[in-house]
């Protein structure tokens, strides 16, 4: 196991999540893509902590912040999904085009 191996895993997860976030139409599927991208940050943060400065807890703190970010993203994402679904039965991004004009 090396830093490069961990970072390659993180990059692969980031790329998969980016594909999902860009290509999916369903709001919840986009959130799944975003979660995969945050997961990449978790892997990279832990790897940097262990392979670069294990004596300092900074890398662990980054991981904790990323985990919290994931929870916040999901809670707010679902709240917005519920609100937008209530207002106009919208569950796909292409249908939410009120601000286009």
């Amino acid at each position: 196991m090396t830093l490069q191996a961990f970072l390659l895993l993180a990059v692969a997860l980031l790329a998969v999540g980016l594909y999902g976030a860009l290509s999916q139409q369903s709001i919840v599927m986009i959130m799944m893509g975003l979660e995969l991208m945050v997961n990449a940050v978790i892997v990279a943060g832990a790897a940097f902590w262990f392979f670069v400065s294990p004596a300092q807890p900074d890398g662990q703190v980054v991981v904790l912040v990323a985990v919290t970010l994931m929870a916040v993203e999901m809670a707010m994402g679902f709240a917005v999904a519920i609100a937008i679904f209530r207002s106009g039965e919208i569950d796909m991004t292409d249908m939410a085009a009120e601000l286009r004009d």
Binding site: A15, V16, L18, Y19, L22, S23, Q24, Q25, S26, M29, M92, D94
Partner: peptide
């Protein structure tokens, strides 16, 4: 349920 699959794939 996808849009712009090729573009997304290329970017990823």
């Amino acid at each position: 349920m996808v849009h712009n699959r090729r573009g997304s794939l290329a970017i990823a």
